[in-house]
């Protein structure tokens, strides 16, 4: 009885002794900058910087000082400044980024074509039926993004995902989750956004959703800064050229372009008229 216990204990002790000695003998000094950098990072391990978690990013920064300090969207400008201080370099500009839902097809705007009783996730609905509404490009509205968000920043309101810009850190997890790729990450200072990505021709798009971009090009003509291009029947705003004037949003005949500065009541009046038609 005693021999087996003694032998296993002995093997364990020998292994432990060897490992302890080895960890002293083969000690590789940990880079001090790495430890300092890691301490400044938020530790959310969301991977939004493009590395496998905060450790990996700190490691990459410690090895390559020319790397941008502003890759962490969770920490934003504060963390970027602290990281830069540790490395003794100039902080790059870290504009706060937020998720933008490129769809405004709420319940009253986008036609629902089925009563879906299946698994209540967007990915399932997309896989089996290609979505629930007449528009195959838009928000499915079953909330995969809301479930994926670690920061309680995205919710389904009226059948379409809406971002709470105060909570959003721009980590991009929702954008990766969305089976229709409706969500994109954009700088928070861009307040005027095209909330549609339907590439069908105008008439088809409008039939599917009253808030769809029909590619009429009025916005592009209105814009004084040449920030808007219409391609594949959908308008795109260049975030660098856009000055947030909001003229395009006023001009848009369908409500596909929205100015976030003006807090609108959801499901505004044009919706009712078009549902009947």
């Amino acid at each position: 009885m005693l021999t087996p216990i003694l032998i296993v204990v002995a093997v364990g002790l020998v292994c432990a002794a060897i490992l302890t000695i080895a960890s002293k003998v083969f000690f590789v000094p940990v880079d001090e900058t790495f430890a300092n950098l890691r301490a400044e990072l938020p530790g959310a391990n969301c991977g939004a910087c493009g590395y496998n978690g905060c450790d990996d990013y700190a490691n990459a920064l410690a090895e390559d000082h020319s790397l941008s300090c502003s890759l962490c969207p969770v920490g934003g400008a504060d963390v970027a400044a602290k990281l830069a201080e540790v490395l003794g370099v100039e902080a790059g500009s870290a504009d706060k980024e937020v998720a933008v839902v490129m769809c405004n097809g709420h319940k009253d705007a986008a036609k629902t074509i089925m009563e879906y009783k299946g698994v209540q996730t967007c990915s399932a609905a997309k896989q089996f039926f290609g979505g629930l509404s007449a528009c195959p490009h838009g928000c499915i509205g079953l909330g995969d993004c809301a479930a994926a968000c670690d920061f309680d920043a995205i919710h389904i309101c009226d059948g379409v995902a809406v971002v709470n810009r105060d909570n959003c850190v721009g980590c991009g997890v929702c954008a990766k989750t969305c089976p229709n790729s409706v969500i994109k990450i954009q700088t928070a200072k861009n307040l005027v956004v095209v909330q549609c990505k339907n590439t069908d021709k105008g008439a088809v798009a409008r039939k599917a959703c009253s808030n769809a971009c029909i590619g009429c090009g009025k916005c592009a003509k209105t814009c004084k800064f040449e920030a808007i291009t219409v391609e594949n029947n959908v308008a795109t705003i260049d975030p660098v050229k856009c000055k947030n004037c909001g003229m395009c949003a006023k001009e848009c005949p369908t409500g596909a372009i929205n100015n976030m500065r003006i807090k609108k009541a959801p499901a505004a009046k044009p919706a009712e008229a078009k549902v009947e038609a």
Binding site: A16, L19, F27
Partner: peptide, 22 residues
């Protein structure tokens, strides 16, 4: 089984340290 797992785990750790150093 018990002893083998113990030995293999320690061995891999040791090898990792050696590789990291040399």
């Amino acid at each position: 089984t018990v002893v083998f797992i113990l030995v293999i785990a320690s061995l891999v750790q040791l090898v990792e340290m050696l590789l990291k150093k040399y």
